Amino acid sequence: MRELLCVVVVYRFYSADVRAESFEVFDRCKRKVAVTANPTVLVEPVVRDFLGGDKVLGTEIEVNPKTKKATGFVKKPGVLVGKWKRLAILREFGDDSPDI
């Protein structure tokens, strides 16, 4: 039960931080991809379940292959900021760059 409560708190935290005007623009887009420096595992459920998004480009957390639990370490290339964020967008969209 404790994990479920944490998930609800995360959902409320992220979804409460979205402005109505921003959501209206996001909702009108054909393909909805969120880009964030936050861990994908935290943001993806909010983007998919509450905002209707298609995908999240974010910081990836390492998972222990034996236990299937997060180690707390960040996968390469690291936290998705600056040039890494730009490269993630270029990899995802290629020559068909996003409008917004």
Score class of each variant (00 low, 15 high):
residue 35 V to Y: 05
residue 28 R to L: 11
residue 14 Y to C: 05
residue 58 G to V: 01
residue 80 L to E: 00
residue 82 G to P: 02
residue 61 I to A: 04
residue 30 K to F: 07
residue 23 F to G: 03
residue 10 V to G: 04
residue 17 D to P: 02
residue 49 D to M: 14
residue 8 V to L: 10
residue 43 V to W: 00
residue 92 E to Q: 12
residue 43 V to A: 02
residue 15 S to Y: 11
residue 65 P to F: 09
residue 54 D to P: 00
residue 19 R to G: 09
residue 60 E to Q: 14
residue 19 R to K: 13
residue 5 L to Q: 15
residue 93 F to V: 09
residue 39 P to M: 04
residue 69 K to L: 14
residue 45 P to G: 10
residue 93 F to K: 04
residue 29 C to M: 11
residue 75 K to C: 10
residue 92 E to R: 11
residue 93 F to G: 08
residue 68 K to S: 13
residue 59 T to W: 00
residue 11 Y to M: 12
residue 4 L to W: 11
residue 80 L to F: 02
residue 24 E to V: 09
residue 8 V to Q: 13
residue 14 Y to W: 10
residue 48 R to Y: 01
residue 51 L to C: 05
residue 20 A to S: 15
residue 99 D to V: 11
residue 7 V to F: 03
residue 91 R to V: 07
residue 42 L to Y: 08
residue 45 P to N: 09
residue 17 D to S: 15
residue 35 V to K: 06
residue 47 V to T: 02
residue 15 S to Q: 15
residue 94 G to S: 08
residue 31 R to N: 12
residue 15 S to G: 13
residue 38 N to F: 12
residue 55 K to A: 06
residue 33 V to Q: 05
residue 63 V to P: 00
residue 74 V to L: 01
residue 85 K to V: 06
residue 71 T to H: 03
residue 58 G to M: 02
residue 60 E to D: 15
residue 58 G to H: 01
residue 33 V to I: 13
residue 35 V to M: 13
residue 49 D to R: 12
residue 69 K to W: 10
residue 16 A to C: 09
residue 9 V to H: 12
residue 60 E to L: 11
residue 70 A to I: 11
residue 57 L to P: 00
residue 26 F to R: 03
residue 37 A to Q: 09
residue 64 N to W: 11
residue 12 R to D: 13
residue 79 V to C: 00
residue 19 R to N: 14
residue 28 R to Y: 03
residue 97 S to L: 15
residue 86 R to A: 13
residue 57 L to A: 03
residue 60 E to H: 12
residue 58 G to F: 00
residue 65 P to V: 04
residue 86 R to C: 07
residue 34 A to T: 07
residue 50 F to I: 11
residue 45 P to H: 02
residue 25 V to G: 12
residue 35 V to R: 08
residue 12 R to E: 10
residue 22 S to E: 06
residue 92 E to N: 14
residue 97 S to D: 09
residue 56 V to W: 01
residue 72 G to S: 03
residue 86 R to I: 14
residue 42 L to Q: 07
residue 32 K to D: 07
residue 24 E to A: 15
residue 44 E to H: 05
residue 51 L to D: 03
residue 34 A to F: 04
residue 77 P to E: 08
residue 28 R to G: 15
residue 5 L to H: 14
residue 67 T to K: 06
residue 5 L to N: 12
residue 39 P to C: 05
residue 96 D to Y: 10
residue 11 Y to H: 11
residue 29 C to A: 14
residue 67 T to L: 07
residue 49 D to K: 06
residue 21 E to S: 08
residue 55 K to W: 04
residue 67 T to H: 06
residue 75 K to Y: 01
residue 89 I to G: 03
residue 54 D to H: 11
residue 10 V to A: 09
residue 50 F to A: 08
residue 3 E to N: 14
residue 39 P to D: 01
residue 31 R to F: 00
residue 42 L to F: 13
residue 95 D to Y: 14
residue 22 S to D: 14
residue 67 T to I: 07
residue 67 T to P: 08
residue 21 E to A: 12
residue 4 L to A: 14
residue 39 P to S: 02
residue 58 G to L: 02
residue 25 V to P: 04
residue 31 R to P: 03
residue 38 N to V: 05
residue 1 M to P: 05
residue 35 V to G: 03
residue 62 E to Y: 00
residue 96 D to P: 00
residue 21 E to Q: 06
residue 100 I to S: 13
residue 37 A to V: 10
residue 83 K to M: 08
